[in-house]
């Protein structure tokens, strides 16, 4: 019993909390430099966050219990009380934010999906859901600035549930779609290239190839890999193209033989490019597709409420900083905590 009390005291103490914070800070600083990406999903790191959650939860409960016992909340409303309530609010806010994170890691889903213009994708293939919801991309549009850089990306979407279009909405970066528990964000985009392998006698079958996919050339060991489609290709810029305007459109491709890179080129639509002896490839055009991030996060509401509590609490605790003397008194009063 004594041991249990001692363990509880250690787990719920502020010292432990601060040590955990130091550890989390050190580990994440080192982790972000040594293992970029992936590190923050490791078990050890999650455990640290869980321990912090436990510690802060108990620490906050202790504080509330202590204040209740000492009739602190029945005191006259003054700076000291506002500050203490602020401290409580901000700590419970952080606890809620961490709980939201835990809920997300158990029940949250986040997937990237690609939809070609005019096509429909059933989200049930990408995520777990009770009733299947489908998204149809009616149109994808890139708006450009005068210098050709992208100004905004628009996906015109229809939400289909139970065979009926429930909602139509154009989403863009910073303006996601919210439907029931699902949110869809404009995440990226791309082009699929309509390509054919042709010879002098055969016009070939058209294939839709995504960026990164390869076309095999019948009767040849060589393959053609689509790198990217550029709507306004500037040969002086190499791969650092940034213009999204409709201009000198090119498909940048690379040719491989036995995984060895033979060369790179930038082809115009409709022109025959000789890949091997009398074997050609032709790019006929492109189909744009949108890349959406589709997310469902039942923990988000906790995080949001926690954030608001945290911000309010920090303001209350720090704006109403008592004068030094009073604070010393208060510390003596709360020293037991």
């Amino acid at each position: 019993m004594v041991a249990a009390k001692e363990i509880y005291r250690i787990i719920s103490s502020m010292k432990t909390g601060l040590c955990l914070l130091v550890l989390i800070g050190l580990v994440s600083a080192v982790g972000s430099m040594v293992f970029p990406g992936g590190f923050f999903n490791t078990f050890v790191f999650k455990l640290l966050l869980l321990l912090l959650l436990l510690n802060m939860m108990l620490c906050t409960i202790n504080r509330v219990v202590f204040f209740k016992k000492s009739n602190f909340f029945k005191r006259k409303i003054g700076k000291g009380l506002i500050r203490q309530i602020g401290v409580l609010l901000l700590h419970s806010g952080i606890v809620l934010i961490l709980i939201g994170g835990v809920v997300y890691s158990f029940y949250g889903q986040s997937e990237q999906i690609e939809i070609l213009s005019g096509e429909t994708t059933n989200l049930a293939y990408a995520m777990v859901m009770d009733k299947p919801i489908s998204l149809k991309l009616n149109d994808f549009k890139i708006e450009t600035n005068h210098d050709g850089t992208p100004s905004q990306y628009y996906s015109d979407l229809s939400v289909i549930e139970g065979g009926k279009t429930q909602r139509k909405q154009v989403i863009s970066v910073n303006h996601p779609l919210k439907y029931k528990h699902i949110k869809a964000y404009q995440d990226s985009y791309g082009y699929a290239v309509r390509s054919r392998a042709v010879t002098n006698t055969d016009n070939g079958q058209e294939q839709l190839l995504y960026e990164g996919e390869s076309l095999t050339i019948p009767g040849s060991k060589r393959t053609v890999k689509i790198y990217r489609y550029f709507p306004d290709f500037d040969p002086t810029k190499g791969m650092a193209q940034n213009s999204m305007k409709q201009g000198d459109a090119r498909v940048v491709y690379s040719v491989y033989e036995n995984k060895k890179l033979l060369g790179v080129g930038a082809a115009k639509f409709g022109s025959k490019i000789e890949i091997d002896d009398h074997k050609y490839v032709v790019f006929d055009g492109v189909e744009p597709f949108t890349v959406l991030k589709v997310k469902s996060d039942p923990g988000l509401i906790f995080v949001l409420i926690g954030s608001l509590m945290f911000m309010l609490g920090v303001s209350m605790a720090l704006i109403y900083m008592p004068a030094r003397k009073k604070q010393n008194q208060l510390q003596q009063n709360t020293a037991v905590v």
């Binding site: 994440s28 972000s32 995080v303």
Partner: peptide
């Protein structure tokens, strides 16, 4: 709102 994730452990966020 913009990226669909409130915290991604991006280097700026970490620091």
């Amino acid at each position: 709102q913009a990226w669909g994730a409130y915290w991604t452990w991006d280097p700026k966020e970490v620091w």
